[in-house]
């Protein structure tokens, strides 16, 4: 745990809890100093996002992972990934981390299968 996250040290706190409030981790967004407007545009879910969403619920239903575990591994993503990934990119990265952690799949297996799928995709 770094003593101070650069974001909080370098930016004036537009909104802030009291002086003695602890420094939040990256996912812990409540009260972060931003005035960014809310992008209210509706997002049409993409096929792979729909599968990612469903895959997580299937895995939870089978007792292979839990929502709490998925949250934990997403929170453990490097800050730049947590902030840079889209919502379902975070889920996909989290599901992979959990399946590997639990020895259900290996990274090498997923690499190999993903390469095969990408090659076939380009042939289509």
């Amino acid at each position: 745990m770094p003593a101070c996250q650069p974001f909080f040290c370098d930016n004036p706190r537009v909104y802030s809890p009291r002086e003695d409030s602890p420094i939040p981790r990256t996912h812990d967004r409540g009260g972060w100093p931003t005035k960014e407007p809310i992008d209210r545009s509706e997002h049409q879910i993409e096929d792979w996002e729909r599968s990612t969403d469903a895959l997580q619920y299937v895995l939870v239903g089978k007792g292979l992972t839990s929502t709490d575990e998925l949250r934990r591994v997403m929170e453990d993503l490097p800050a730049k990934d947590y902030e840079g990934f889209s919502y379902y990119e975070r889920w996909a990265a989290g599901i992979e981390a959990l399946l590997v952690e639990k020895n259900v799949l290996t990274t090498e297996e997923i690499d190999g299968k993903a390469r095969g799928l990408a090659d076939r995709w380009e042939e289509q």
């Binding site: 895959l55 992979e96 799949l105 993903a114 799928l117």
Partner: peptide
């Protein structure tokens, strides 16, 4: 095929 779309498809097939 997007990077994450590929990972998810790969995981599902495996």
């Amino acid at each position: 095929l997007g990077y994450f779309a590929g990972r998810v498809m790969a995981m599902e097939s495996l």
